[in-house]
Design a protein around this nucleic acid. Structure first.
Lengths: 245, 245
DNA sequence: ACTTTTTCTTACCCGTGGGTAACATATCGG
DNA sequence: CCGATATGTTACCCACGGGTAAGAAAAAGT
């Protein structure tokens, strides 16, 4: 018979029922976040009790208070995990070169993929009003940074000629909205893989913006490649995402 | 001489503090919904108490139970108001003619406008998990109808040649996502009017799909482009209708 | 071994807010 | 004017769940 404690379905907890509990503190902390984010997404923050979170980890509620100040802090930390993912994506894109359109496409692709992860989805499915005013402020700032990045890539693309003139603010809203919505409808057991979604959205959300979008038009390189060069001469190998579709 | 009780700021309640309370039942019921939807959007369903809703209407909590079975039914009825708005829009579009693309544009335009209303926003900002299983089922069905309509217009447009071949499912997700997101960021006191948003989104979300997007391609303009320019008073560069370039 | 510190459990508190019972007061048909 | 019916009010109940206190049980230090 299975006298050994039955392993929980997925992402096994560091606290096995009666076993060695010698993991590092940070690992446990993160395990709490993984369990919590999953439950919060499944059932919604307000319907999840700390007892449930604890139970899923084979511990009891007060034990959670060794790692977090309270429920809202757990929520915030989950949210922050997602924000960090996005921030690192942005940092990486900024580090690389490319036209505004190329950067935008990279961002769209990576962001779409993130929306299919738990922490990524938490970014758009959690209600910031559940946080303390202080944490909500941090979160708002992070959102602002992300939004600004979208706009920056778009207006940068307009300047360098890779994107047709448009209102960067509304274009960013439209693109970010379509992406954020992924976090609401994506299901792991659905018919679509994250990479399929990311590939398709990268095309769909930028095809209307590109100056050289279809096979038509003069197929010349981006017209008048950046003359308003503010420093970094990123010319190099552009090839604005033309590839595989 | 306004010796009468001072009217509350906006959307005056039928229950004036000590005055005639002789309005029809349905009007009162709807007044409850208007007050509720506003509070739910402002603060979030779980943070709004029935006492608050009642207070805003100059009544007390138990009085609400004359019109609704409970809090969750109020939520559902608010949601339904939004759903009915969308349904009537769809019915009207279906009644009219036009290519798939034309219908899609009408839907995008109307839907964007709805997202800037309280009941419209409630459609995407309320959590269906707060409803009873029965009501949640109704809501899911309504959402399904809306989604189906988007896809139908798109695949219809592909068939009639007004829309370039693409995956209708993902295209619908992208468009609906961008639109739904309006319900999350739109603020009445922001710098953008609903009609500006609707106009811009109508262009932005369909320009990538149209077979005749830019100045080339066939001539069969299905309908005259909406010259409904109501007020183009914002940031200078914005050529909504024209496919110039 | 022994203390000390960290981690976790049992048992409890208590504010909150949806919901109800019982009663009061309009409103209306006649 | 009078009961019947809608409509509101006051006063209360109580389940729920976040949070805490006090102490057991490991881990770690000595």
């Amino acid at each position: 018979m299975d006298s050994a404690p039955p392993a929980p379905p997925s992402s096994p907890s560091p606290w096995l029922p009666f076993e060695s509990r010698r993991r590092a503190r940070d690992e446990k902390r993160e395990a709490v976040l993984r369990a919590a984010v999953q439950l919060f997404l499944e059932q919604g923050y307000h319907r999840v009790t700390l007892n449930e979170v604890a139970e899923r980890l084979n511990i009891t509620k007060p034990a959670l208070y060794n790692y977090f100040r309270g429920k809202d802090e757990i929520l915030f930390e989950c949210w922050s995990m997602g924000a960090e993912l996005v921030d690192s994506v942005i940092t990486e894109i900024n580090a690389g070169g490319g036209s505004g359109l190329a950067k935008l496409r990279k961002l769209v692709h990576a962001y779409a993929g993130l929306m299919a992860t738990d922490f990524g989805a938490s970014l758009v499915r959690f209600d910031l009003r559940d946080l303390t005013e202080r944490n909500a402020g941090v979160a708002r700032a992070a959102k602002k940074r992300i939004d600004t990045t979208f706009r920056k890539y778009i207006s940068g693309g307009i300047d360098d000629g890779s994107i047709r003139p448009c209102d960067p603010k509304l274009a960013a809203f439209a693109i970010a909205g379509a992406l954020n919505w992924i976090g609401h409808w994506y299901r792991r057991d659905g018919g679509l893989s994250p990479s399929e979604i990311a590939d398709e959205f990268t095309v769909r959300l930028t095809e209307g913006l590109a100056t050289e979008g279809r096979q038509q038009m003069t197929k010349k390189t981006p017209r008048a490649p950046q003359r308003r060069n503010s420093g970094r001469a990123t010319t190099g190998k552009k090839r604005t995402g033309g590839g595989t579709r």
